[in-house]
Amino acid sequence: MSSIKDRVIGIIAEQAVLDPSDVTMDSTLEDLGIDSLGLVESIFAIEEEFDVSVPFNANEPEASDFDISSVASIVAGIEKLIAEQS
């Protein structure tokens, strides 16, 4: 099975309609052209993929400790959630 990183990148690439090779760890969602609706959709897809609950409220994205500022931070956040929920 592919790594968490590759699976997250796959989800984000699909949302951004890009090839996974074009999504780098330091990309921000904005760089990739993902807007607020795209973000909420990506988080939903990630929750479904990993069977986790991501604590994300669109009104206060900075309030949860789930950091969406870059692909790397999202991957790190998912790894932490999976570790906590396993």
Binding site: N57, A58, N59
Partner: peptide, 20 residues
């Protein structure tokens, strides 16, 4: 809930700490 714009703790319009 799916849209992630709802508040879990209250409606605080115009307040800096509003959360949905």
């Amino acid at each position: 809930e799916g849209l992630r714009v709802m508040s879990k703790d209250g409606c605080r319009p115009f307040s800096a700490n509003r959360n949905g």
